[in-house]
Design a protein around this nucleic acid. Structure first.
Lengths: 154, 154
DNA sequence: AATATTAGTTCGTGTTGCGAACTATGAGCG
DNA sequence: CGCTCATAGTTCGCAACACGAACTAATATT
């Protein structure tokens, strides 16, 4: 027995929407994962390539973007560096800090993968017509809408 | 080669939509990840709990759902079993096969986490009004729409 | 100058995921 | 029937990933 239902239909639809979001997330992740794997990159590495596409960040900032610990970054960047995708350089302003950025090769790979992601997800979005696509993009955009209020999860 | 641009704006909007989907996926995953972590479960373990919520599957089927190798499942189920969340039982129809299912405790945890997911994503979807939520759910539903055609990614 | 803070690294641990090799059960066929 | 082949899981060794605690080096604070 559901106790009361202040708004019975709200809870229902909310639940279904969340499920849809989660399902979409898994599908999307599977695609990203596969594309990464095709290039012998983990999801995280692929993500770093995406993040560093147009930026140069220090370790801590990168960790922040990824939601990971600094100590995790060391190994991550180590491996990427070993593969020639990224490089480290001491920060100009802070002697302790280290900047990370994509090498030429890393940039190339990043762009290539980005294109593959587009291509791989195209069949999905093509199930919607042009105006629905625009609508979806709009709704997602409004939902994610920059940094206001974070997600917080508890 | 794209000869002329049949619809220049299509590529553009397509790109932005894909980016929005990917971003939404990462946000969603971060939430799931956190909820799992709160219960000392990996994303994958959390997912298994979700999948087995109302099912009882054999190892291979589970691997299929997750897109993982059978050999990966062994360890996964081992650890979950050790924590008392799942259990194995020989299949009735096939002497080789093993069924996996949630224990009472696993079911409880699964439901609890499911509720937390709802709750954690609520702030996000609340940025949309009721009819937009319905719309979004609809669009996602149509996009994912069951098994037609898989994603394929290459 | 002495102390505290911050940025990264190192180290040890557990989990995840893979592929190759293996065991055991079931299916096919001659 | 018995032999072979296929299938379901497991085991094993490996690399990556992520964490936290302890460490080093550089900057801030006082």
């Amino acid at each position: 027995m559901k106790p009361k239902s202040p708004k019975r239909s709200d809870a229902r639809s909310s639940e279904e929407l969340v499920d849809a979001l989660v399902q979409a997330a898994f599908v999307t992740m599977a695609v990203l994962n596969k594309i990464g794997a095709d290039h012998a990159l983990s999801l995280t590495q692929l993500r770093v390539c995406g993040i560093l596409r147009d930026r140069r960040l220090r370790m801590a900032a990168l960790a922040d973007y990824l939601g990971l610990e600094k100590s995790t970054m060391t190994g991550l960047v180590d491996r990427a560096e070993r593969r020639g995708l990224m490089a480290r350089a001491p920060s100009a302003e802070d002697g302790r800090a280290v900047d990370v950025f994509l090498t030429r090769e890393g940039t190339k790979l990043g762009e290539q993968m980005h294109a593959q992601v587009q291509q791989s997800l195209t069949p999905l979005i093509e199930r919607l017509n042009a105006s629905d696509r625009q609508l979806l993009q709009d709704l997602l955009g409004r939902m994610l809408d920059s940094e206001n209020g974070k997600v917080a999860s508890r």
